[in-house]
C-alpha cells in the first residue's frame, strides 16, 4: 500500500503494509534515528513524535494513520526556534537526559509550552511523567522546562 504524508516539512510516499509500526518506517525507511525504539507498547514514551501537532508514540501508530498527515520528528523539530529555546533551557538548568529519552522529553516540553506558556511545577511533572527513564534528575528537568518557557516568552514578546 502506498501511503503519502508530510515528514518534517517534505512530501513523502512510502510503500508498506498498512499496519507496519510507524517507528520502524521512520527509522528504517527514512533513517530518522533520533526517535528511539523502546517498549513497543506505547508505555515508555521514547518514540514520541508529532502527528498533526499531537504527541503520539510512533510504536503504536500503524503507518496508515499517517496518511495525508503532518509528521514531525526530532530531526525536523531541531531546526526550529522553539527547539533552540528548549535546548538552551535544558543546558541552562543542567537537564541532561540520556540519548534514548531526550527526543521524547524535548517534544513533550514543546507540546506543554504550546498549550501552557507558563506551566507550574506540577503541570511540568505531569507532562513528563509519560516518559519512563531512570536517566536524570526530575528537578533539573523541571527547571529546564521552566527555563525553556522563559526563553520562549522572551523570544515571543521580548519581555518577561
Amino acid at each position: 500500500m502506498k501511503i503519502s504524508f508530510t515528514l518534517n516539512g517534505k512530501e513523502v510516499t512510502v510503500e508498506s503494509p498498512p499496519y507496519a509500526r510507524f517507528i520502524h518506517i521512520l527509522r528504517e525507511r527514512f533513517g530518522l534515528l533520533g526517535t528511539k525504539e523502546g517498549c513497543l507498547q506505547g508505555k515508555c514514551g521514547f518514540c514520541f513524535i508529532f502527528l498533526n501537532a499531537e504527541l503520539v508514540p510512533a510504536c503504536m501508530l500503524p503507518v496508515f494513520s499517517a496518511f495525508r498527515g503532518n509528521v514531525t520528528t526530532i530531526e525536523g523539530f531541531r531546526s526550529t526556534p522553539e527547539f533552540s529555546d528548549i535546548e538552551k533551557g535544558f543546558l541552562q538548568a543542567g537537564a541532561n537526559p540520556c540519548g534514548f529519552c531526550s527526543s521524547a522529553k524535548i517534544l513533550t516540553t514543546h507540546k506543554l509550552l504550546e498549550e501552557n506558556p507558563s506551566p507550574s511545577e506540577a503541570q511540568i511533572r505531569k507532562a513528563l511523567s509519560g516518559i519512563i527513564c531512570r536517566c536524570t534528575s526530575y528537578s533539573c528537568l523541571v527547571e529546564g522546562v521552566k527555563a525553556a518557557a522563559l526563553n520562549r516568552r522572551q523570544r515571543d514578546h521580548g519581555s518577561r
Binding site: L33, G34, K36, T73, E87, L91, P97, C98, G99, F100
Partner: peptide, 21 residues
C-alpha cells in the same frame, strides 16, 4: 561536555540500535 549534551538533545546520539548495517 556541552557539545555532547547538545548532540544528545538534538537526537544525534548513536547507540547500538542506530547502527544501520
Amino acid at each position: 561536555q556541552t557539545m555532547t549534551i547538545q548532540k544528545i538533545l538534538q537526537g544525534r546520539g548513536v547507540f547500538i540500535e542506530d547502527i544501520m548495517d
